[in-house]
Nucleic acid binder design. Sequence first.
DNA 1: GTATGATTCATACGAACGTTTGAATGAAGA
DNA 2: TCTTCATTCAAACGTTCGTATGAATCATAC
Lengths: 226, 226
Amino acid sequence: MTDTKMRLLDSAETLFAERGIAETSLRDITAHAEANLAAVNYHFGGKDGLLEALFARRFGPVNEERLLLLDGFEAAATGTPLPLEQILYANFAPPFRRIDALGDAGQAFMRVVARINADPSSSIHQTFLRHFDEIRRRFHAALRSSLPELSTTEIERRFHYGIAAMMHTFCWGQHLDCFRIDPTEPRERVLSSLIEYAAAGLRAARGTVDVEALSELESQVTEVTP
Amino acid sequence: MTDTKMRLLDSAETLFAERGIAETSLRDITAHAEANLAAVNYHFGGKDGLLEALFARRFGPVNEERLLLLDGFEAAATGTPLPLEQILYANFAPPFRRIDALGDAGQAFMRVVARINADPSSSIHQTFLRHFDEIRRRFHAALRSSLPELSTTEIERRFHYGIAAMMHTFCWGQHLDCFRIDPTEPRERVLSSLIEYAAAGLRAARGTVDVEALSELESQVTEVTP
DNA sequence: GTATGATTCATACGAACGTTTGAATGAAGA
DNA sequence: TCTTCATTCAAACGTTCGTATGAATCATAC
Protein backbone atom coordinates (compact mmCIF):
# COMPACT_ATOMS: atom_id res chain seq x y z
CA MET A 1 0.00 0.00 0.00
CA THR A 2 1.46 3.30 -1.10
CA ASP A 3 1.98 6.18 1.26
CA THR A 4 -0.65 8.29 -0.42
CA LYS A 5 -3.23 5.53 -0.25
CA MET A 6 -2.68 5.07 3.46
CA ARG A 7 -2.61 8.77 4.16
CA LEU A 8 -5.92 9.10 2.35
CA LEU A 9 -7.46 6.36 4.47
CA ASP A 10 -6.16 7.93 7.67
CA SER A 11 -7.38 11.39 6.74
CA ALA A 12 -10.76 10.11 5.66
CA GLU A 13 -11.12 8.24 8.94
CA THR A 14 -10.29 11.33 10.94
CA LEU A 15 -12.48 13.72 8.99
CA PHE A 16 -15.44 11.36 8.64
CA ALA A 17 -15.40 10.94 12.40
CA GLU A 18 -15.13 14.66 13.06
CA ARG A 19 -17.69 15.99 10.61
CA GLY A 20 -19.65 13.08 9.24
CA ILE A 21 -19.40 11.30 5.95
CA ALA A 22 -21.75 13.35 3.82
CA GLU A 23 -20.32 16.55 5.28
CA THR A 24 -16.74 15.68 4.37
CA SER A 25 -15.73 16.41 0.79
CA LEU A 26 -13.00 14.73 -1.20
CA ARG A 27 -11.31 18.13 -1.26
CA ASP A 28 -11.23 18.14 2.53
CA ILE A 29 -9.74 14.67 2.58
CA THR A 30 -7.11 15.21 -0.07
CA ALA A 31 -6.12 18.53 1.46
CA HIS A 32 -5.73 16.92 4.89
CA ALA A 33 -3.69 14.09 3.36
CA GLU A 34 -1.63 16.56 1.32
CA ALA A 35 -2.58 14.66 -1.80
CA ASN A 36 -4.11 15.66 -5.08
CA LEU A 37 -7.86 15.82 -5.47
CA ALA A 38 -7.80 13.12 -8.13
CA ALA A 39 -5.92 10.71 -5.87
CA VAL A 40 -9.09 9.33 -4.30
CA ASN A 41 -10.57 8.43 -7.65
CA TYR A 42 -7.27 6.99 -8.81
CA HIS A 43 -6.70 4.76 -5.79
CA PHE A 44 -10.23 3.89 -4.73
CA GLY A 45 -12.42 4.64 -7.70
CA GLY A 46 -14.46 7.18 -5.81
CA LYS A 47 -15.83 8.14 -2.44
CA ASP A 48 -17.77 4.91 -1.98
CA GLY A 49 -14.69 2.84 -2.76
CA LEU A 50 -12.79 4.76 -0.14
CA LEU A 51 -15.44 3.96 2.47
CA GLU A 52 -15.32 0.30 1.50
CA ALA A 53 -11.56 0.29 1.90
CA LEU A 54 -11.95 1.94 5.29
CA PHE A 55 -14.27 -0.83 6.43
CA ALA A 56 -12.08 -3.61 5.09
CA ARG A 57 -9.03 -2.24 6.85
CA ARG A 58 -10.63 -2.11 10.31
CA PHE A 59 -13.53 -4.55 10.47
CA GLY A 60 -11.53 -7.55 9.39
CA PRO A 61 -9.13 -7.73 12.33
CA VAL A 62 -11.74 -6.78 14.95
CA ASN A 63 -14.26 -9.37 13.81
CA GLU A 64 -11.60 -12.06 13.50
CA GLU A 65 -10.63 -11.32 17.07
CA ARG A 66 -14.23 -11.57 18.23
CA LEU A 67 -14.72 -14.97 16.64
CA LEU A 68 -11.35 -16.21 17.88
CA LEU A 69 -12.32 -15.20 21.41
CA LEU A 70 -15.72 -16.82 21.21
CA ASP A 71 -14.16 -19.97 19.78
CA GLY A 72 -11.62 -20.05 22.57
CA PHE A 73 -14.19 -19.59 25.32
CA GLU A 74 -16.47 -22.22 23.82
CA ALA A 75 -13.63 -24.70 23.45
CA ALA A 76 -12.65 -24.16 27.08
CA ALA A 77 -16.26 -24.61 28.21
CA THR A 78 -16.49 -28.04 26.50
CA GLY A 79 -20.13 -27.84 25.55
CA THR A 80 -21.59 -26.10 28.57
CA PRO A 81 -23.24 -22.73 27.94
CA LEU A 82 -20.89 -19.78 28.37
CA PRO A 83 -21.34 -17.21 31.12
CA LEU A 84 -22.90 -14.08 29.65
CA GLU A 85 -19.88 -12.08 30.71
CA GLN A 86 -17.64 -14.16 28.47
CA ILE A 87 -19.93 -13.73 25.47
CA LEU A 88 -20.16 -10.00 26.05
CA TYR A 89 -16.42 -9.72 26.60
CA ALA A 90 -15.81 -11.48 23.30
CA ASN A 91 -18.12 -9.01 21.62
CA PHE A 92 -17.06 -5.78 23.31
CA ALA A 93 -13.40 -6.18 24.17
CA PRO A 94 -11.95 -6.37 20.63
CA PRO A 95 -13.26 -2.99 19.47
CA PHE A 96 -12.26 -1.39 22.78
CA ARG A 97 -8.79 -2.86 22.53
CA ARG A 98 -8.47 -1.82 18.90
CA ILE A 99 -9.34 1.73 19.89
CA ASP A 100 -6.63 1.70 22.49
CA ALA A 101 -4.11 0.28 20.07
CA LEU A 102 -4.89 2.73 17.30
CA GLY A 103 -5.17 5.78 19.49
CA ASP A 104 -7.02 8.71 17.96
CA ALA A 105 -7.45 6.92 14.65
CA GLY A 106 -9.27 4.08 16.38
CA GLN A 107 -11.66 6.41 18.16
CA ALA A 108 -12.25 8.17 14.88
CA PHE A 109 -13.07 4.98 13.04
CA MET A 110 -15.43 3.76 15.71
CA ARG A 111 -17.31 7.00 15.57
CA VAL A 112 -17.64 6.59 11.83
CA VAL A 113 -19.06 3.15 12.48
CA ALA A 114 -21.47 4.49 15.07
CA ARG A 115 -22.73 7.05 12.59
CA ILE A 116 -23.30 4.47 9.90
CA ASN A 117 -24.92 2.17 12.42
CA ALA A 118 -27.43 4.87 13.28
CA ASP A 119 -28.31 5.30 9.65
CA PRO A 120 -29.92 2.06 8.45
CA SER A 121 -31.17 3.64 5.24
CA SER A 122 -27.88 4.98 3.95
CA SER A 123 -26.49 3.57 0.73
CA ILE A 124 -23.39 2.21 2.43
CA HIS A 125 -25.37 0.40 5.10
CA GLN A 126 -25.93 -2.85 3.23
CA THR A 127 -22.22 -3.19 2.59
CA PHE A 128 -21.61 -2.33 6.19
CA LEU A 129 -23.93 -5.02 7.51
CA ARG A 130 -22.41 -7.77 5.41
CA HIS A 131 -19.28 -7.58 7.57
CA PHE A 132 -21.34 -8.70 10.56
CA ASP A 133 -23.40 -11.58 9.23
CA GLU A 134 -21.26 -14.27 10.80
CA ILE A 135 -20.71 -12.28 13.99
CA ARG A 136 -24.41 -11.91 14.56
CA ARG A 137 -25.12 -15.54 13.78
CA ARG A 138 -22.46 -16.87 16.14
CA PHE A 139 -23.26 -14.57 19.03
CA HIS A 140 -26.96 -15.18 18.74
CA ALA A 141 -26.31 -18.88 18.95
CA ALA A 142 -24.11 -18.47 22.01
CA LEU A 143 -26.70 -16.30 23.73
CA ARG A 144 -29.48 -18.71 22.90
CA SER A 145 -27.69 -21.56 24.58
CA SER A 146 -26.86 -19.45 27.63
CA LEU A 147 -30.37 -18.01 27.90
CA PRO A 148 -32.67 -20.94 27.06
CA GLU A 149 -35.66 -19.41 28.80
CA LEU A 150 -35.64 -16.32 26.56
CA SER A 151 -37.42 -16.17 23.22
CA THR A 152 -35.35 -15.70 20.08
CA THR A 153 -36.98 -12.33 19.50
CA GLU A 154 -36.15 -11.15 22.98
CA ILE A 155 -32.55 -12.33 22.71
CA GLU A 156 -32.17 -10.48 19.45
CA ARG A 157 -33.68 -7.35 20.96
CA ARG A 158 -31.45 -7.39 24.01
CA PHE A 159 -28.37 -8.15 21.98
CA HIS A 160 -29.15 -5.05 19.96
CA TYR A 161 -29.64 -3.01 23.11
CA GLY A 162 -26.10 -3.89 24.07
CA ILE A 163 -24.75 -3.02 20.64
CA ALA A 164 -26.56 0.28 20.91
CA ALA A 165 -24.94 1.03 24.26
CA MET A 166 -21.51 0.24 22.85
CA MET A 167 -22.07 2.39 19.78
CA HIS A 168 -23.33 5.22 21.96
CA THR A 169 -20.19 4.94 24.06
CA PHE A 170 -17.96 5.26 21.02
CA CYS A 171 -20.06 8.01 19.54
CA TRP A 172 -20.29 10.17 22.66
CA GLY A 173 -16.97 9.21 24.14
CA GLN A 174 -15.41 12.55 23.41
CA HIS A 175 -18.46 14.59 24.29
CA LEU A 176 -19.51 13.17 27.63
CA ASP A 177 -17.37 13.11 30.71
CA CYS A 178 -18.90 9.88 31.94
CA PHE A 179 -17.46 7.97 28.99
CA ARG A 180 -14.08 9.58 29.02
CA ILE A 181 -11.60 7.34 30.70
CA ASP A 182 -9.61 8.90 33.48
CA PRO A 183 -5.96 8.34 32.54
CA THR A 184 -5.11 7.55 36.14
CA GLU A 185 -7.65 4.75 36.23
CA PRO A 186 -7.38 1.41 34.54
CA ARG A 187 -8.52 1.66 30.95
CA GLU A 188 -11.04 -1.13 31.28
CA ARG A 189 -13.47 0.75 33.48
CA VAL A 190 -15.92 1.69 30.74
CA LEU A 191 -15.67 -1.78 29.26
CA SER A 192 -16.52 -3.45 32.55
CA SER A 193 -19.37 -1.01 33.09
CA LEU A 194 -20.76 -1.91 29.70
CA ILE A 195 -20.45 -5.65 30.28
CA GLU A 196 -22.08 -5.44 33.70
CA TYR A 197 -24.95 -3.40 32.35
CA ALA A 198 -25.54 -5.62 29.33
CA ALA A 199 -25.23 -8.84 31.32
CA ALA A 200 -27.76 -7.66 33.88
CA GLY A 201 -30.08 -6.55 31.09
CA LEU A 202 -29.80 -9.90 29.32
CA ARG A 203 -30.57 -11.73 32.56
CA ALA A 204 -33.65 -9.63 33.32
CA ALA A 205 -36.72 -11.81 33.72
CA ARG A 206 -39.38 -11.22 31.11
CA GLY A 207 -42.80 -10.09 32.21
CA THR A 208 -41.69 -8.36 35.39
CA VAL A 209 -42.72 -4.95 34.13
CA ASP A 210 -46.44 -4.41 33.78
CA VAL A 211 -46.85 -1.48 31.45
CA GLU A 212 -50.59 -1.53 31.91
CA ALA A 213 -50.22 -1.10 35.64
CA LEU A 214 -47.78 1.74 35.10
CA SER A 215 -50.20 3.30 32.65
CA GLU A 216 -52.97 3.04 35.21
CA LEU A 217 -50.78 4.59 37.88
CA GLU A 218 -49.99 7.32 35.40
CA SER A 219 -53.62 8.24 34.89
CA GLN A 220 -54.07 8.34 38.66
CA VAL A 221 -51.14 10.64 39.33
CA THR A 222 -51.72 12.95 36.39
CA GLU A 223 -55.46 13.41 36.34
CA VAL A 224 -55.57 15.02 39.78
CA THR A 225 -53.08 17.70 38.69
CA PRO A 226 -54.30 18.84 35.31
CA MET B 1 -50.01 27.58 10.61
CA THR B 2 -50.69 27.56 6.91
CA ASP B 3 -51.25 24.37 4.96
CA THR B 4 -48.01 24.74 3.06
CA LYS B 5 -46.01 25.29 6.20
CA MET B 6 -47.40 22.13 7.77
CA ARG B 7 -47.01 20.10 4.61
CA LEU B 8 -43.39 21.19 4.43
CA LEU B 9 -42.78 20.06 7.99
CA ASP B 10 -44.47 16.72 7.35
CA SER B 11 -42.55 16.10 4.15
CA ALA B 12 -39.26 17.11 5.72
CA GLU B 13 -39.91 14.75 8.63
CA THR B 14 -40.64 11.87 6.30
CA LEU B 15 -37.74 12.45 3.94
CA PHE B 16 -35.20 13.23 6.66
CA ALA B 17 -36.12 9.95 8.29
CA GLU B 18 -35.93 8.00 5.06
CA ARG B 19 -32.72 9.37 3.60
CA GLY B 20 -31.00 11.45 6.22
CA ILE B 21 -30.82 15.18 6.69
CA ALA B 22 -27.76 16.00 4.62
CA GLU B 23 -28.96 13.68 1.88
CA THR B 24 -32.33 15.37 1.55
CA SER B 25 -32.43 18.52 -0.56
CA LEU B 26 -34.91 21.34 -0.33
CA ARG B 27 -35.99 20.37 -3.82
CA ASP B 28 -36.88 16.88 -2.57
CA ILE B 29 -38.87 18.36 0.30
CA THR B 30 -40.76 20.95 -1.69
CA ALA B 31 -41.51 18.46 -4.44
CA HIS B 32 -42.86 15.95 -1.89
CA ALA B 33 -44.94 18.68 -0.28
CA GLU B 34 -46.10 19.94 -3.69
CA ALA B 35 -44.83 23.37 -2.80
CA ASN B 36 -42.52 25.78 -4.50
CA LEU B 37 -38.81 25.56 -3.94
CA ALA B 38 -38.74 29.02 -2.40
CA ALA B 39 -41.40 28.12 0.17
CA VAL B 40 -38.87 26.76 2.66
CA ASN B 41 -36.90 29.97 2.67
CA TYR B 42 -40.08 32.02 2.85
CA HIS B 43 -41.61 30.16 5.80
CA PHE B 44 -38.56 29.02 7.75
CA GLY B 45 -35.71 31.17 6.51
CA GLY B 46 -33.72 28.19 5.32
CA LYS B 47 -32.97 24.54 5.92
CA ASP B 48 -31.72 25.09 9.47
CA GLY B 49 -34.85 27.01 10.39
CA LEU B 50 -36.93 24.14 9.09
CA LEU B 51 -35.06 21.71 11.32
CA GLU B 52 -35.56 23.98 14.31
CA ALA B 53 -39.28 24.14 13.60
CA LEU B 54 -39.34 20.36 13.33
CA PHE B 55 -37.78 20.04 16.78
CA ALA B 56 -40.06 22.62 18.37
CA ARG B 57 -43.17 20.91 17.04
CA ARG B 58 -42.36 17.49 18.45
CA PHE B 59 -39.96 17.83 21.37
CA GLY B 60 -42.14 20.25 23.31
CA PRO B 61 -45.12 17.95 23.93
CA VAL B 62 -43.02 14.83 24.52
CA ASN B 63 -40.75 16.45 27.07
CA GLU B 64 -43.65 18.14 28.84
CA GLU B 65 -45.27 14.74 29.14
CA ARG B 66 -42.10 13.24 30.56
CA LEU B 67 -41.80 15.87 33.25
CA LEU B 68 -45.51 15.71 34.04
CA LEU B 69 -45.21 11.96 34.53
CA LEU B 70 -42.14 12.25 36.71
CA ASP B 71 -43.80 14.97 38.77
CA GLY B 72 -46.89 12.80 39.21
CA PHE B 73 -44.95 9.74 40.29
CA GLU B 74 -42.84 11.74 42.70
CA ALA B 75 -45.87 13.44 44.20
CA ALA B 76 -47.52 10.06 44.71
CA ALA B 77 -44.38 8.65 46.30
CA THR B 78 -44.32 11.42 48.93
CA GLY B 79 -40.57 11.66 49.27
CA THR B 80 -39.56 8.04 48.99
CA PRO B 81 -37.31 7.12 46.06
CA LEU B 82 -39.20 5.99 42.97
CA PRO B 83 -38.99 2.44 41.64
CA LEU B 84 -36.68 2.40 38.65
CA GLU B 85 -39.50 1.14 36.47
CA GLN B 86 -41.48 4.31 37.12
CA ILE B 87 -38.55 6.54 36.24
CA LEU B 88 -37.88 4.60 33.07
CA TYR B 89 -41.56 4.55 32.19
CA ALA B 90 -41.68 8.33 32.55
CA ASN B 91 -38.69 8.60 30.24
CA PHE B 92 -39.59 6.01 27.60
CA ALA B 93 -43.38 5.92 27.46
CA PRO B 94 -44.02 9.45 26.11
CA PRO B 95 -41.99 9.05 22.91
CA PHE B 96 -43.42 5.58 22.35
CA ARG B 97 -46.95 6.90 22.84
CA ARG B 98 -46.29 9.86 20.60
CA ILE B 99 -45.11 7.51 17.87
CA ASP B 100 -48.32 5.53 18.15
CA ALA B 101 -50.43 8.66 18.07
CA LEU B 102 -48.67 10.17 15.08
CA GLY B 103 -48.42 6.96 13.09
CA ASP B 104 -45.84 7.00 10.32
CA ALA B 105 -44.97 10.63 10.94
CA GLY B 106 -44.02 9.82 14.53
CA GLN B 107 -41.76 6.96 13.53
CA ALA B 108 -40.19 9.23 10.95
CA PHE B 109 -39.49 11.97 13.44
CA MET B 110 -38.01 9.64 15.99
CA ARG B 111 -35.64 8.29 13.39
CA VAL B 112 -34.58 11.82 12.59
CA VAL B 113 -33.89 12.29 16.28
CA ALA B 114 -31.92 9.06 16.45
CA ARG B 115 -29.78 10.20 13.57
CA ILE B 116 -29.02 13.53 15.16
CA ASN B 117 -28.36 11.84 18.46
CA ALA B 118 -25.72 9.65 16.84
CA ASP B 119 -24.01 12.69 15.40
CA PRO B 120 -22.70 14.76 18.33
CA SER B 121 -20.55 16.91 16.08
CA SER B 122 -23.21 18.12 13.70
CA SER B 123 -24.07 21.80 13.62
CA ILE B 124 -27.64 21.20 14.73
CA HIS B 125 -26.61 19.13 17.71
CA GLN B 126 -26.19 21.96 20.18
CA THR B 127 -29.68 23.24 19.43
CA PHE B 128 -30.91 19.71 19.71
CA LEU B 129 -29.37 19.15 23.14
CA ARG B 130 -30.81 22.31 24.62
CA HIS B 131 -34.27 20.75 24.48
CA PHE B 132 -33.11 18.12 26.96
CA ASP B 133 -31.30 20.10 29.62
CA GLU B 134 -34.12 19.96 32.12
CA ILE B 135 -35.03 16.39 31.24
CA ARG B 136 -31.53 15.18 31.92
CA ARG B 137 -31.25 17.14 35.15
CA ARG B 138 -34.53 15.88 36.56
CA PHE B 139 -34.04 12.25 35.60
CA HIS B 140 -30.50 12.19 36.89
CA ALA B 141 -31.76 13.47 40.23
CA ALA B 142 -34.48 10.85 40.37
CA LEU B 143 -32.05 8.07 39.54
CA ARG B 144 -29.54 9.31 42.10
CA SER B 145 -32.09 9.10 44.87
CA SER B 146 -33.23 5.63 43.77
CA LEU B 147 -29.69 4.32 43.32
CA PRO B 148 -27.76 5.83 46.24
CA GLU B 149 -25.01 3.22 46.09
CA LEU B 150 -24.06 4.12 42.51
CA SER B 151 -21.59 6.86 41.65
CA THR B 152 -22.79 9.87 39.69
CA THR B 153 -20.58 8.89 36.79
CA GLU B 154 -21.96 5.38 36.70
CA ILE B 155 -25.56 6.63 36.86
CA GLU B 156 -24.91 8.97 33.98
CA ARG B 157 -23.30 6.19 31.99
CA ARG B 158 -26.14 3.75 32.53
CA PHE B 159 -28.78 6.38 31.87
CA HIS B 160 -27.10 6.96 28.54
CA TYR B 161 -27.01 3.23 27.82
CA GLY B 162 -30.78 3.23 28.18
CA ILE B 163 -31.18 6.25 25.94
CA ALA B 164 -28.98 4.51 23.40
CA ALA B 165 -31.15 1.40 23.47
CA MET B 166 -34.27 3.51 22.96
CA MET B 167 -32.72 5.43 20.08
CA HIS B 168 -31.56 2.19 18.52
CA THR B 169 -35.09 0.85 18.77
CA PHE B 170 -36.52 3.85 16.96
CA CYS B 171 -33.75 3.87 14.42
CA TRP B 172 -33.91 0.19 13.53
CA GLY B 173 -37.60 -0.30 14.17
CA GLN B 174 -38.42 -0.64 10.51
CA HIS B 175 -35.36 -2.67 9.61
CA LEU B 176 -35.32 -5.38 12.25
CA ASP B 177 -38.10 -7.83 12.86
CA CYS B 178 -37.39 -8.01 16.56
CA PHE B 179 -38.40 -4.36 16.99
CA ARG B 180 -41.42 -4.47 14.77
CA ILE B 181 -44.53 -4.78 16.82
CA ASP B 182 -46.82 -7.60 15.90
CA PRO B 183 -50.23 -6.00 15.33
CA THR B 184 -51.93 -8.89 17.07
CA GLU B 185 -49.91 -8.33 20.21
CA PRO B 186 -50.34 -5.51 22.67
CA ARG B 187 -48.40 -2.50 21.50
CA GLU B 188 -46.47 -2.14 24.72
CA ARG B 189 -44.32 -5.22 24.26
CA VAL B 190 -41.23 -3.42 23.03
CA LEU B 191 -41.66 -0.72 25.65
CA SER B 192 -41.82 -3.25 28.47
CA SER B 193 -38.80 -5.09 27.05
CA LEU B 194 -36.87 -1.85 27.05
CA ILE B 195 -37.88 -0.94 30.59
CA GLU B 196 -37.03 -4.41 31.91
CA TYR B 197 -33.65 -4.36 30.23
CA ALA B 198 -32.76 -0.86 31.38
CA ALA B 199 -33.98 -1.44 34.93
CA ALA B 200 -31.92 -4.60 35.27
CA GLY B 201 -28.91 -2.81 33.84
CA LEU B 202 -29.31 0.08 36.24
CA ARG B 203 -29.57 -2.32 39.19
CA ALA B 204 -26.45 -4.27 38.21
CA ALA B 205 -23.91 -4.29 41.01
CA ARG B 206 -20.67 -2.54 40.19
CA GLY B 207 -17.47 -4.50 40.29
CA THR B 208 -18.97 -7.90 39.55
CA VAL B 209 -17.20 -8.13 36.21
CA ASP B 210 -13.46 -8.59 36.41
CA VAL B 211 -12.08 -7.61 33.04
CA GLU B 212 -8.60 -8.60 34.09
CA ALA B 213 -9.72 -12.12 34.88
CA LEU B 214 -11.52 -12.31 31.54
CA SER B 215 -8.41 -11.03 29.84
CA GLU B 216 -6.35 -13.69 31.55
CA LEU B 217 -8.81 -16.39 30.54
CA GLU B 218 -8.60 -15.02 27.03
CA SER B 219 -4.86 -15.45 26.82
CA GLN B 220 -5.25 -19.02 28.08
CA VAL B 221 -7.87 -20.04 25.54
CA THR B 222 -6.32 -18.28 22.56
CA GLU B 223 -2.64 -19.04 22.94
CA VAL B 224 -3.12 -22.79 22.65
CA THR B 225 -4.90 -22.44 19.32
CA PRO B 226 -2.81 -20.01 17.33
C1' DG C 1 -64.09 47.19 -7.54
C1' DT C 2 -59.93 48.09 -5.78
C1' DA C 3 -56.15 48.38 -2.77
C1' DT C 4 -53.18 45.77 0.34
C1' DG C 5 -50.56 42.37 2.31
C1' DA C 6 -49.49 37.60 2.40
C1' DT C 7 -48.22 33.83 -0.30
C1' DT C 8 -46.76 31.27 -4.44
C1' DC C 9 -44.39 30.97 -8.57
C1' DA C 10 -40.67 30.39 -12.38
C1' DT C 11 -36.17 31.45 -12.76
C1' DA C 12 -31.52 32.56 -11.90
C1' DC C 13 -27.14 32.87 -9.15
C1' DG C 14 -22.85 31.51 -7.09
C1' DA C 15 -20.72 27.96 -4.58
C1' DA C 16 -19.41 23.34 -3.70
C1' DC C 17 -19.57 18.84 -4.97
C1' DG C 18 -17.74 14.14 -7.26
C1' DT C 19 -15.62 12.94 -11.26
C1' DT C 20 -12.79 13.12 -15.50
C1' DT C 21 -8.98 14.28 -18.43
C1' DG C 22 -4.50 14.65 -20.36
C1' DA C 23 -0.13 16.24 -19.44
C1' DA C 24 3.86 16.11 -16.12
C1' DT C 25 6.67 13.48 -13.08
C1' DG C 26 9.23 9.80 -11.14
C1' DA C 27 11.41 5.33 -10.48
C1' DA C 28 12.81 0.84 -12.52
C1' DG C 29 14.25 -2.33 -16.29
C1' DA C 30 16.37 -3.02 -20.87
C1' DT D 1 20.18 6.38 -22.28
C1' DC D 2 15.83 5.26 -23.52
C1' DT D 3 11.46 3.10 -22.56
C1' DT D 4 7.75 1.95 -19.69
C1' DC D 5 4.41 2.18 -16.46
C1' DA D 6 2.57 3.71 -12.14
C1' DT D 7 1.63 7.82 -9.88
C1' DT D 8 0.76 12.77 -9.32
C1' DC D 9 -0.76 17.01 -10.90
C1' DA D 10 -3.53 21.31 -12.45
C1' DA D 11 -7.49 22.27 -14.67
C1' DA D 12 -11.93 21.65 -16.12
C1' DC D 13 -16.70 19.38 -16.53
C1' DG D 14 -21.42 18.79 -15.49
C1' DT D 15 -24.46 18.41 -11.62
C1' DT D 16 -26.73 19.65 -7.56
C1' DC D 17 -27.09 22.32 -3.78
C1' DG D 18 -29.08 26.42 -0.77
C1' DT D 19 -30.47 30.87 -1.52
C1' DA D 20 -32.24 35.13 -3.69
C1' DT D 21 -35.26 37.81 -6.78
C1' DG D 22 -39.14 39.96 -8.77
C1' DA D 23 -43.36 39.11 -10.90
C1' DA D 24 -47.81 36.69 -10.44
C1' DT D 25 -51.58 35.15 -7.64
C1' DC D 26 -54.75 35.01 -3.92
C1' DA D 27 -57.59 36.42 0.09
C1' DT D 28 -59.43 40.01 2.55
C1' DA D 29 -60.90 44.66 4.01
C1' DC D 30 -62.45 48.88 2.57
